[in-house]
């Protein structure tokens, strides 16, 4: 089911948790709402669920305006951050619960619960209480319970935040698989960019209650619309510094980074991702202030005319603290932003 969010706003007093949000999610897509804490992503999710009442704006599921419709009639499945499994019921009873409430007869409810259990690989655990399950298993019970009533939309609030690192990667693939198998329009909230980028069809990056950009993950990373998105995406974070454009070249302090044309002279904010540098004989000379070995990469800290920057180099580079080397920036990898933080272009 297509979801359309129009001018959605949630205000708490003077604070606008969500501020005039517009977003369209196509049928069957998996969309990640990504942003720092307090950006309004969970508020948005709960407004979609109907548990939080919007101050203004409209939500459409397909052609139907659901803004005023209570959660139980919205045909949604919701998975809570802490899973919110009913602690005194077994897995089977938990999954059957939404059906029993909707007066599905016991036999059919049980059949459908077992069908769901099979989908999320929970067979054999049906008699357990939630307490006796691991975090990952609880998560899958929560998903099964959300999907058993065959909702049109699946909503997940920080689905992976309560799991340990290894389980996280496994579970996010599980979520993707289940979503693809059921073909359900799914929205999930996360503050973890890697999580969002790895499984989403599209990501909406939010900050201060506003969608900063809505894009497919790769384009979002390569073509951020503004400084916030550029800074929020990428680990380690993008290098930013104030760059001067004069006489047809971009300078960092006195160091000429790139010759360009068609840009008026002035000061801009430049962004260069750590992996966008390359070690090059004809580059500018720098000195390694620190070297951090991360396994696959070397993270080297250096200063370029007083600007502290970082470069991500391949781990086979032989360099130690204090060592000199030469760097250049790969073509088209210097992002320039104007005073408002909007992207001007890549050079």
């Amino acid at each position: 089911m297509e979801i359309r969010i129009e001018n959605l706003t949630k205000a708490y007093g003077d604070f606008r948790a969500v501020d005039g949000m517009n977003l369209t999610i196509c049928d069957g897509e998996l969309v990640g709402l990504l942003g720092p804490s307090g950006c309004g992503k969970s508020t948005t999710l709960f407004m979609l669920a109907g548990l939080t009442e919007p101050t203004d704006g409209k939500i459409f599921f397909g052609d139907k305006d659901v803004t005023k419709i209570p959660p139980e009639e919205r045909e949604i499945g919701l998975v809570f951050q802490n899973y919110a499994l009913y602690p005194h019921m077994t897995v089977e009873e938990n999954i059957m619960f939404p059906l029993i409430n909707r007066k599905v007869n016991k036999k059919e409810a049980k059949e459908r619960a077992y069908e769901m259990a099979k989908l999320v690989h929970l067979e054999g655990l049906m008699d357990r209480k939630p307490k006796a399950l691991s975090g990952g298993q609880q998560q899958r019970v929560a998903i099964a319970r959300a999907l058993v009533k065959k909702p049109k939309v699946l909503l997940l609030d920080e689905p992976l935040s309560n799991l340990d690192a290894k389980l996280r990667i496994e579970t996010r693939e599980e979520i993707r698989r289940i979503q693809q198998e059921v073909g359900i329009t799914t929205i999930f909230v996360t503050h973890d960019q890697e999580e969002a980028m790895s499984i989403s069809d599209k990501i909406a990056v939010m900050d201060k209650g506003v969608v900063q950009q809505y894009e497919v993950p790769q384009s979002m990373y390569l073509e951020p619309e503004n400084l916030f998105v550029a800074q929020f995406l990428g680990m380690p974070e993008i290098n930013t510094f104030s760059a001067v454009v004069k006489d047809g070249a971009i300078y960092c302090g006195q160091v000429k980074l790139r010759e360009i044309s068609g840009l008026s002279d002035g000061t801009y904010t430049a962004g260069i991702r750590p992996e966008s540098f390359e070690v090059r004989e004809d580059g500018f000379a720098v000195e390694a202030a620190h070297v951090r070995m991360t396994g696959r990469d070397l993270l080297i800290y250096f200063t370029l005319d007083k600007e502290p920057l970082r470069v991500l180099a391949h781990s086979d580079l032989q360099i130690e603290k204090g060592g000199a080397f030469k760097l250049g920036v790969r073509q088209n990898q210097i992002m320039l932003f104007d005073a408002d933080g909007s992207m001007i272009g890549k050079y």
Binding site: L51, P71, E72, E73, L78, Y86, P98, N101
Partner: peptide, 9 residues
Amino acid sequence: LYNAARVDA
């Protein structure tokens, strides 16, 4: 839990 119960009708 109450919110979950609400969504579960």
